[in-house]
Write a protein that binds this DNA or RNA. Structure first.
Lengths: 234, 234
DNA sequence: CCATTCACCGAACGACCGTTCGGCTCATAC
DNA sequence: GTATGAGCCGAACGGTCGTTCGGTGAATGG
């Protein structure tokens, strides 16, 4: 058995390789805020939001505990900023890259490559977005939810076009199909650590292949399947 | 847009419908422990392990705070028991159901149906197992990891047989393929709530279809793909 | 030169946390 | 009848948490 990949998949999380950029006190307000956010992402990604104390974030960001409250109204605010910025970037980035791409399968490739690529370079951010999805509430939650829904819908419409074009008779529930793709992408933080033998770009292609053609591609397997409205069989 | 499924996928978690079984003080030690564990699973699933206080667990289980320590040495012990029992049950259940099933695809169907079926009836348990995977450490972590690895390997060997039989020339990285299946299963707790229009059994079939045949099934799409050892393209 | 604002900090507050301790009740054993 | 132990609890302990308050020193504007 390949023990290293099992180590990665079932050991503790792949390490996030903190770039050890000490937060310098120079720079504009926005630059300083970004640096603090970067440090906060690493702490929250590795400890979890609830276990990540403001004191730990302050230490990682080279700021005093009280100094944090110059940039954030409270702890939730940090999580909100991380999630809002990440999801917004993901959405805008997807829309930009989609410009001029018309073929549905090609659009899907763009989506997967974009997402995996961003994941590979911002693992902490995407881990926080995947793992701490439900900790916000009220307005903050609603606002982020809006961006997530738009990201879903953009992806869903691509998937719709792919299926309409290449498998119009498909009996698959397209919401389930879409969530399956997001599952593969959102679960990455649990097992994937970029390495030279498994590059982000190669991984994106593999995910695309699996999602489009499944594990056995064009082979002709009869998968007896109930339509989504039929009752359960057992 | 189908707003209810978006509500489920992007709203707060599907509610876990606490069966409101008050922990009765009668029964054997094991029965009482099981009831407390059941209550703890619901609390931990809805609040998260770190936010689930021993006081909240005690209240949900109708036991005093100090009384909890008659059954558990500490808080981690509760999490350990939940995870160990769930993963062990999942593994044993899979092995039992596999008896007498020889066809690889049929074995895979058994695996997916078994997992989804258990998920549908024990959402809290599987949510705790999916979401709080990395909170244990030391011996407890190692012990649970062992069970998880066995569950992975059982699934991996099924997938190997499926690919060897139906797509022997496949270029896919089989670890990635296996983790993709687990991604779909482990991410379920984020969006799936069993309902009559999307039964557990129907969902299992859909996941199986997507995993085996992909979104477009046998349609002939060229998915340009780098082998897993080739360098990244961009 | 002085007033104001910004950026930041040390120290503290009250709330809540996991855990422990001493003691209570009640069924069983002798 | 009394000793024993299991099962359970109220109360408290020390610690950590998020947050706030009152301040300092440097930069800025008039």
């Amino acid at each position: 058995m390949e023990s290293r990949e099992l180590e990665q998949a079932f050991g503790k999380y792949p390490s996030v390789t903190l770039p050890s950029v000490p937060v310098e006190s120079r720079g504009s307000y926005d630059e300083r805020l970004n640096r603090i956010l970067e440090a906060a992402m690493v702490v929250i990604a590795s400890e979890g939001y609830s276990n990540a104390s403001m004191r730990a974030v302050a230490k990682a960001a080279n700021v005093s505990l009280a100094g944090l409250y110059h940039y954030f109204t409270n702890k939730e605010h940090i999580l909100f900023l991380i999630q809002f910025r990440t999801f917004t970037f993901l959405l805008n980035s997807l829309r930009e890259r989609l410009h001029g791409v018309d073929e549905p399968v090609e659009q899907l490739r763009v989506m997967v490559k974009s997402h995996v690529g961003y994941f590979a370079t911002h693992m902490s951010a995407l881990k926080v977005c995947s793992h701490e999805l439900d900790l916000l509430s009220g307005e903050a939650f609603t606002e982020i939810r809006q961006v997530r829904v738009e990201y879903y819908q953009a992806t869903r419409s691509i998937i719709d076009r792919v299926i309409d074009k290449h498998a119009p008779e498909s009996h698959l529930d397209r919401h389930v199909v879409t969530m399956s793709l997001f599952s593969m992408l959102n679960w990455l933080y649990r097992w994937y650590a970029p390495g030279q033998e498994r590059s982000p770009s190669g991984l994106a292609n593999q995910i695309l292949s699996i999602f489009l053609g499944g594990a056995i591609g064009a082979a002709n397997i009869e998968v007896e399947s109930e339509g989504k409205t039929q009752p359960a069989r057992d």
